[in-house]
Design a protein around this nucleic acid. Sequence first.
RNA 1: GGGCGUUUAACUCAGCGGGAGAGUGAGUCCUUCACACGGACUAAGUCGGGGGUUCAAUCCCCUCAACGCCCACCA
Length: 933
Amino acid sequence: MTTSSALSKQYDPSDVEPRWRRFWQENNYFHADDASPTIPYAITLPPPNVTGSLHIGHALGSTLQDILIRWKRMSGSNAMWMPGTDHASIAVHVLLEKELMRAEKKTRFDLGREEFMKRAWAWKERSGSRINEQEKLMGFSLDWERERFTMDERSNVAVTECFVRLYEEGLIYRAKRMIHWDTASQTVVSDLETDDVEEQRSLWEIAYPIEGGGEIIVATTRPETMLGDSGVAVHPDDPRYTDVIGKQVILPLTGRKIPIVGDGILAKMEFGTGAVKVTPAHDPNDYDCGQRNHLEFIQVIDLHGKMIAPAPDKYVGMTVVAARKAVVADLEAAGVLRDTKPYKMTVKRSQRSGAVIEPMALEQWWVKAAPLAEKAVAAVEAGKTKFIPEHEQKTFMHWMTNIKDWCISRQLWWGHRIPAWHCEKCETIMVARTAPSECGTCGGSVHQDEDILDTWFSSGLWPFSTLGWPEKTRALQTFYPNSVLVTGPDIIFFWVARMMMFGLHFTGKVPFKTVYLTSIVTDETGAKMSKTKGNVIDPLQILSGATLDSLLERVDAEKPLDPEAVKKALRKNFANGIPQMGADALRFALARLSTSGAGRIKLNVDRIVENRNFINKLWNATRFALGNLDGFDPERFGGAAQRELFGIGERWILSRLQAVCTAVDTALEAFAFSEAANAIYHFVYDELCDWYLELSKPHLAQVEGDPVKAALRHAVQGVLATCLETTMRLLHPFAPFVTEEIWQKLPKKPELPGSLMITVFPRADQTFVDPEAEAEMQLVQDTITRCLMLKGTYGVPPAQKVEVEIQIPNPAVRSAITPHLAAIAYRAKVTPALRSETAPMAGAARAMVGADVEIVMPLGGLVDPVKETERITKDIARADKEISSIAARLGKPDFVARSPADVVAENRTRLADEQARRERLVEALAILGGGAA
RNA sequence: GGGCGUUUAACUCAGCGGGAGAGUGAGUCCUUCACACGGACUAAGUCGGGGGUUCAAUCCCCUCAACGCCCACCA
């Protein structure tokens, strides 16, 4: 009964993953000690919004972070990964309010602030725990003891402290300005929180009669705002209008008189008629124009997007859209509508609620951004924070150097209430850490500001508020600045910029030394994943698998714009559902897809299957090893005497193992996740499984009474176990579950720790680096491959042994290959005979390995002389092409004179090899002609 | 309008100054005692177009084109 028979042929993640999740948790391996003397390495997880559950983008970012954290932890650092969630003020509002309207036909105002907050907290609990659950399923080694929430007590303290200090420093102020008003969510949103959506609208041309005769024609996309017009602007240098500037026009539908002003900033001579209506209360550019020209400020649209007085009674109460229709009809009836043209324009919509933004002038709280941004710019210029990929730094710097003040107040409820109190008698506003009992100026009673803060205000403090700031904690001292921030490029302005500004301002240090920006995960067509498109893939569906039916069911729950199209796509792309992949396969796939440069990852289930297959391959390699390791004693392995026994295969694979260790470590230092993962992938497939496992087989047979063979067997067992054990350590940051499972099963020295995740990350051992073995092995591999090619070409079943002559005139090459004939025989399933000269053979197929080795396989009647001639002729043509290209290069005096000596030497060698090879191919062709005759 | 990115085998994508690579797919063969979520072999590329720098360019520079992203503006 071997061990392997106890392991199933297919790796089953659902059996393995829960066990190790529990084991790691119970042993508290994820916790970092504030007081540890080792080098700290800290990452703060970008806190997911408590709006729902994690999507594949989170899975990507967090996987990369866990790779870094586990790698650094194993490399001896005090690695700390801070978990937490974000209250996501407006995002939660939109969800809750939609739900409230659907289920109870109520607005949040019907419900009241207190009840609404209760529901928001309940929502937060549900969503937060679902997110934690997902993070645990993915195997993320987050330091759960430290878990935080942006609206927990300690965060509230930090937010208040930050606000009060900025206010006291004059960096937070109140001002009335044009802002973006979201009529659906009933709040201000910042300029970053709007989307430009292209829509087909109309451009209307309206004639405004001029007092004393004539008319002036203005063009507009928003005729309803004319009810609030307080002027008409023309360019002061426009010859068409020089004599009307200063005159009054009579505004149709209202009869109000408004002036014609000259304003070269607002009015462009070349656009339309060159005359533009000015509505200072409802357009940002008109607002500025109004200020410049002292025009009246006439508000005709209210906060709900409905018309109000002084618009004529007829329109009052209409929505903006209804009023637009009515105004157009009335203008037409009045005979002043001159033209209606279809017009494509971009409309600003609220990113969260989707409502059309109404520009309004309202008093709000602002952060003066320029002084904060200056410090961030200086820090980045000084290289204190680096961006990867590098070009993202330009994006950051461009925004930072053109930054506008940040509107931080929101008229929402779910969030941090602004720590400001208004006197009910006088104008005094008091900003304080604790609520004042009365007005400091007049002693009147006070009430707290109703507004809350933009959700990014608390996020901006996250790297240090989570470590205890404003207190001077040990954690802050140890883990701040963080080592790296891993996040998506879509939130550079929202979040990275704010953390840089706040971090530098409040702590005097950058919040992180490196910003690694991940790719955006898209669907297989390259479209961004979004719930409205219905192309979102849930990481859990990949982890555990999903049937087509369950995927289709989800569509209805998510309510995309076009459910039938989504279902059709699902039926096409996931006809058989999604198979269970396991966390390791998903993680490894994401790491391998994370290359620099390209900003997006087109997620394709096939690419994950590829990596699930890799995990399975590893699993089966282990089954093979465990079935052949009986009698192996790890404590008896590793001495110098053992190394004496190593054959070419052992020396070669151990040398390759050192190379892969170096490659992985180097790649991770450079955040080249895919390079690191690919190095392991290719080592496991191409070297360990394809070659070493096969080469080891003949030596692993049970031997009795032959101490020499028994010692060799033990050495081979040791190499096999070493390769696997080292591979598990290398791969562990990428695929923690399967590696822990395998590692625990492998025989190893008793002094090793109880879990793979706290072993030491592999470093190359130079004493095993063996270029000679690698070169020799290459020759053996090529010889075997050529034998297999010949057998394949003539349809010889791979398992059928055939005789083969290996003709090598070069004595050095011949003696190099001699010790490996057994390996060649075993691997290629041939019976080889070595000859020191080229010799003709009737009915034989021939092939070259490099310039020195010729494989001659007598296949009798199987050999088709026509086919064989064709093949060899093709080989000669290939050689000719090589020869002429290299010869041409070497023929140029400049090449020989100006390129490095080793390049010239290498070209000379290659030329000589190709020429020798060609000679022998020509010879082979001649022999074929003779032999076949 | 400004900025950035991408363009390499049928598909998805690595590579980025000195011999064109991977996975998938295709074809041929193999149910060989780790694995068919497997193995062996084969075919398949003017490395987007044009110009330049260099002894040498898929790689650097210029230019054009297509696609994509971000920012600004839009009476």
